[in-house]
């Protein structure tokens, strides 16, 4: 039976359904890109949850709007604008947020102000451009089925570079994340690490938004890591679980969305959320109090 991409049918035979999925090149590309992004965002997101930089991650994902509108205004590829704004965002959040002994309340305010400024710039660019900025919904929610071979390669190299940076910096980064004061006293460059990690976070956010759209990056960046850190506080097992959750959720979401009229981002976010709720409910039932995602490891004093 030959499959028809315009009219996919879901049967009871799971093997046949999966066979139909991988019959199409665009679907193979989507699954490949999804796996690459899931691995990258799982690793980066795990550190993000540990460092409690969820708001920073969200702000970096919002850079899609000023980035795209600035690039459109300048006549450049949209991705360039996105990466430029993500990079600038990482620098500014890292410098303002990481300086001196900043309290969390001030960091949250400075990140929020930066996000407002960037979005305001985006509105200004749109207004100066005068035209309609493409299809805003597809910009905000991604377009996973249109991924080319070249984009898969780019995603793979971005992911490889980011993971390499994380692996090289793993020990000092963990130290600086868990106890910035002691790490700083021991000569670990806490602030430089913060900027480098935010840059990697920006890359991960930009890559993830290819799959889920900028608004739903947390479905892969945050939820798998939060679920895994609920199950265990030990770094290696929870990191492995994060990877497993991320790839599983992505493939499941992409697979279901192929047979459905609804977009992949919705399924990925919903499955990821359901997994998180199950894990939290299970942890509550078992009375597991070892590691809430809210409290991954004891962090004293100030967020660096």
């Amino acid at each position: 039976m030959s499959a028809d991409p315009a009219n996919p049918r879901l049967g009871w035979n799971v093997l046949r359904d999966v066979g139909e999925l991988v019959e199409y090149h665009f679907m193979v590309n989507a699954l490949l890109a999804g796996a690459i992004v899931a691995v990258m965002s799982a690793a980066v997101g795990w550190v993000m949850v540990l460092r409690r930089q969820t708001f920073a991650g969200h702000t970096l994902s919002m850079m899609a709007f000023p980035g795209a509108s600035a690039a459109t205004l300048a006549g450049l590829p949209v991705a360039w604008g996105y990466f430029a704004f993500c990079g600038a965002g990482a620098l500014i959040i890292g410098r303002v947020g990481g300086s001196e002994r900043r309290t969390w309340s001030e960091e949250s305010a400075s990140i929020g102000t930066f996000q407002a400024v960037a979005l305001a710039a985006g509105f200004l660019f749109v207004s100066l451009y005068g035209g309609v900025l493409g299809d805003l919904d597809s910009l905000l929610f991604g377009d996973v089925l249109g991924i080319s071979d070249g984009q898969v390669l780019v995603l793979a190299s971005v992911a490889a570079a980011s993971l390499a940076v994380l692996v090289v910096l793993a020990r000092p980064l963990l130290f600086a994340s868990v106890d910035p004061d002691v790490a700083g006293a021991r000569g670990v460059p806490v602030r430089a690490l913060s900027v480098v990690f935010l840059a990697v976070l920006g890359l991960a956010v930009a890559a993830t938004s290819q799959i889920t759209g900028p608004l739903l990056v947390f479905a892969l960046l945050l939820m798998p890591a939060a679920s895994a850190q609920t199950i265990t506080a030990r770094p290696i097992p929870s990191l492995a679980l994060t990877l497993l959750f991320g790839v599983g959720v992505t493939w499941l979401g992409l697979g279901i969305s192929y047979f459905s009229v609804y977009p992949a981002g919705f399924f990925i976010a919903t499955i990821s959320f359901a997994g998180y709720v199950l894990v939290r409910a299970g942890a509550a039932l078992l009375g597991v109090r070892r590691a809430r995602p809210a409290d991954p490891m004891p962090v004293d004093g100030v967020i660096a």
Binding site: H58, T103, L215, L222, A269
Partner: peptide, 28 residues
């Protein structure tokens, strides 16, 4: 203030799920 920061995981998860639902309604 530090303890308050911990809410961010829950906030991020909640609004991402709700935005996912928004995407569902948008498509619908």
């Amino acid at each position: 203030g530090v303890a308050l920061a911990a809410d961010d995981t829950a906030i991020g998860i909640a609004f991402t799920f709700i935005l996912g639902l928004g995407l569902f309604f948008l498509t619908r």
